[in-house]
Simulated scan of single mutants.
Amino acid sequence: MSVETMTKTSSEVQQQGDRIIKTTTTEVITKSAMQPQQKMSPFAKFRQLDRQNSLPNPKTPTTPTTPGGSKVVGRPLFVFTDPNMANRALTAKDSLLLWCQTKTFGYENVNIENFSTSWSDGLAFCALIHHYLPDAFDFSKLTPKDRRHNFTLAFRVADEKAGIAPLLDVDDMVMYKKPDWKCVFCYVQSIYRRFRNED
């Protein structure tokens, strides 16, 4: 075989090798893009979104205002990038809120409109627990002023009589007039899961 033929053959082999590498790389990229992503639990997804949305964005002012200078009200706290997840989250939150409103309807000093300030005096927790365990305590003796007693009573009765773990801390709840809605939402979910089939 001549040197010229060997050079041609070597060049052809290299070109073929390049094509194989390119093809293989394309296949790997295509396959990895086509593989379904691992399923993430809703709580893990929520934590991921919470981390993403808590990072400062240099394009967004820290205190959003309208052109007149007043603060913008009603802007969502979190922005879901997946529209299906946004719909499911909105539906779940609204459904749970409606469930709470239904079960506490008629209880004095209880008006549940959200998962934060509506729960700040402990009466909403007491009303929700009392609805399912009316013999556990006398709701009519509770007052909005005795916040610590209300939280302690609701969390203790839920734990002892219904097996609902006390996910919230009484001291934390007493310290804040505006509790973290995510914490309240998680605890109310556990109450819902325990009692959802009872009426």
Rank of each mutant, 00 (worst) to 15 (best):
141 K>Y: 05
155 F>T: 02
28 V>G: 01
23 T>N: 12
4 E>Y: 13
124 A>T: 11
28 V>N: 12
1 M>V: 13
48 Q>D: 06
127 A>M: 02
164 I>A: 05
141 K>C: 00
171 D>R: 08
19 R>Q: 14
178 K>D: 00
143 T>K: 03
79 V>F: 12
197 N>R: 14
132 Y>P: 01
120 S>R: 15
81 T>E: 13
108 E>C: 03
177 K>F: 09
116 S>V: 03
163 G>I: 01
93 K>G: 04
76 P>G: 01
81 T>I: 04
160 E>F: 01
25 T>W: 02
98 L>M: 12
115 F>R: 03
88 R>W: 10
158 A>I: 01
162 A>P: 09
99 W>P: 14
54 S>E: 09
33 A>Q: 10
26 T>Y: 15
172 D>A: 01
177 K>I: 10
154 A>Q: 09
35 Q>M: 11
164 I>R: 02
32 S>I: 08
196 R>A: 08
8 K>S: 03
199 D>W: 13
178 K>R: 14
45 K>Y: 05
103 K>G: 00
74 G>E: 02
24 T>E: 04
161 K>T: 06
154 A>I: 04
83 P>G: 06
141 K>S: 13
188 V>R: 02
125 F>P: 04
5 T>I: 13
151 F>P: 09
35 Q>L: 14
93 K>V: 00
40 M>F: 08
63 T>D: 06
136 A>D: 11
105 F>S: 12
80 F>C: 08
173 M>E: 00
182 K>Y: 06
191 I>H: 01
32 S>N: 14
156 R>H: 10
186 C>T: 04
33 A>P: 00
119 W>V: 01
35 Q>D: 06
9 T>Q: 13
199 D>H: 13
47 R>G: 00
85 M>K: 14
78 F>V: 03
195 F>N: 03
69 G>H: 11
185 F>C: 10
17 G>N: 06
138 D>T: 15
88 R>V: 07
180 D>A: 04
24 T>G: 05
84 N>W: 08
118 S>A: 12
132 Y>E: 01
111 N>F: 06
107 Y>S: 04
135 D>K: 15
2 S>D: 14
48 Q>A: 11
12 E>L: 11
88 R>H: 10
34 M>L: 14
36 P>H: 06
99 W>M: 06
69 G>R: 09
122 G>K: 07
81 T>L: 10
164 I>P: 05
173 M>Y: 01
29 I>N: 12
101 Q>T: 05
72 V>A: 04
131 H>L: 00
126 C>Q: 13
71 K>Q: 09
130 H>I: 03
65 T>D: 00
18 D>W: 15
122 G>V: 02
153 L>A: 01
144 P>K: 09
177 K>W: 08
47 R>W: 09
34 M>K: 15
106 G>T: 05
113 E>R: 15
154 A>W: 15
56 P>M: 05
